[in-house]
Simulated scan of single mutants.
Amino acid sequence: MSPSYKHIHPKFKFNGIHYDLEALKELAYSLVKEGQEYEVAIGKFLMDWLDEADSILVETSGSTGAPKTIALKKEHMVNSALATGSFFKMGVGTKALQCLSTNFIAGKMMLVRAIVLGWEIDFVEPTSHPLGQNSKPYDFCAMVPMQVQGSLSSLNQIGTIIIGGAPISTELKLRLSCVNTKIFETYGMTETITHIAIKEFAKGLEDFNFKSLPDVALSTDHRGCLVIEAPKVSDEIIVTNDLVNLISSTEFQWLGRYDNVINSGGVKLIPEQLESKFSTLISSNFFVAGIPDPDLGQKLILVVEGNMDGNQLSQKIKSLKSISKFEIPKEIFVVPQFVETGNGKVNRTKTIALLHLE
């Protein structure tokens, strides 16, 4: 039987129990009717996946703009699952942990992989410490950086972890150097049905380029932003807002978001590059941004979450040898708590609005 969204793999298990098509439909209904909030999301997705439609509606994360609803073909989602299984050599019987929100594509695809590839998948509530009450060993898991940070003492119970949703901070990379688990940083989005490129995290060897999965061709547009042609997961050529250094049609270095670029007095600053430099000094959540300025057009600011002395931080930043004078923030703001999107990413626009800069 060839893989298809119309079939349940005969070896598929969900929390230790095998489900055929009808049993899985019954489980989905019971989760929606009686489950906790995160279980309701799982049930709703399963009901959508098991219906007669050949596509499914999903919502983008909203981390760089307003969330929107798009339709993804189930056939393409199957293709994505097959590509992941092949790349990581995770076949029938793979023991996987689902700890991401099923409201978003990364969580949905963990379930699709299990159903299509015959994995044995367990699900837990999507918290910042998903391994807190779970000591079982697993072959495969997908997490966001915050979950990895909260699970450092337990990561060795997982064979392979893929990390997505946000860049991995310098501090977290240093802490991961002591972990035996195979760790991969992923690049992708809802429109590409999660990752279409992978970067392995190797101890002592940082800044590897992202390498695309098979059947993915890469190029750039006039802005230097990544263009993705991946016919097995998207009928359309996808033009992103991600600035990249394109190495080849299958390899690139991610620089940052085009829509985040700050033009300060004619000098273009990429926030993500600056944040990587500042991460050696700041342990709490933070980001840099540009705000209107009558002389510079935009001035560079640094926004930090929590409780920190902005003057002391400013002096530390000025002492960094890795930055130029243009990369020193003109102002530093400290706020108690950032505004987040539905899947835990920082909403920069709404957080800046808290500063009441007018």
Rank of each mutant, 00 (worst) to 15 (best):
S4Y: 11
K6S: 11
H9G: 04
N15K: 13
I17E: 14
D20A: 09
L21H: 10
Y29S: 13
S30T: 15
L31H: 03
Q36R: 13
Q36T: 09
V40D: 07
A41P: 01
L46H: 04
S55V: 08
V58I: 12
T60P: 03
T64I: 06
P67G: 04
H76V: 05
M77D: 05
A81E: 09
L82Q: 06
A83L: 15
G91Q: 04
G91Y: 00
V92S: 12
G93M: 06
G93N: 07
G93E: 02
C99N: 01
T102I: 09
T102F: 07
K108M: 15
M109W: 00
M110G: 05
M110L: 15
L111A: 08
L111W: 12
G118A: 06
E120Y: 07
F123K: 01
F123R: 01
V124R: 10
V124H: 07
T127K: 13
H129S: 15
H129V: 14
G132W: 08
S135T: 11
V144M: 11
V148D: 00
V148C: 09
Q149P: 03
Q149F: 11
G150H: 11
L152I: 10
L155M: 07
Q157W: 07
I161H: 06
G165N: 04
I168G: 00
T170V: 11
E171R: 14
L176T: 02
L176S: 03
C178G: 15
N180V: 01
N180I: 01
F184P: 04
Y187S: 10
G188E: 02
M189K: 14
T192L: 12
I193H: 03
T194G: 01
A197L: 05
A197M: 03
A197Q: 08
K199S: 00
A202P: 01
K203Q: 12
G204A: 13
L205H: 15
F208I: 00
F210V: 00
P214I: 13
L218W: 11
L218G: 04
D221N: 15
R223M: 14
R223Y: 08
G224K: 04
G224L: 11
L226Y: 10
L226H: 10
E229G: 04
S234L: 02
E236G: 00
I238K: 05
T240Y: 04
L243I: 13
N245T: 14
L246V: 00
L246G: 03
I247E: 09
E251A: 15
Q253T: 10
Q253Y: 14
R257W: 10
S264W: 13
G266R: 08
E272L: 05
Q273W: 09
L274N: 11
S276Y: 12
T280N: 13
V288M: 05
A289Q: 01
G290T: 10
Q298N: 13
Q298H: 12
K299L: 05
I301D: 00
I301W: 15
V303D: 01
E305D: 03
L313G: 05
K316Q: 15
I317V: 12
K321Q: 14
S322Y: 14
K325I: 08
F326I: 07
I328S: 03
P329F: 15
E331H: 13
F333D: 03
V334H: 02
V335M: 03
V335S: 00
F338L: 01
E340H: 12
N343L: 08
N343T: 09
K350S: 08
T351E: 02
I352E: 06
A353W: 07
A353M: 12
L354G: 02
H356S: 15
H356G: 05
L357Y: 08
L357K: 08
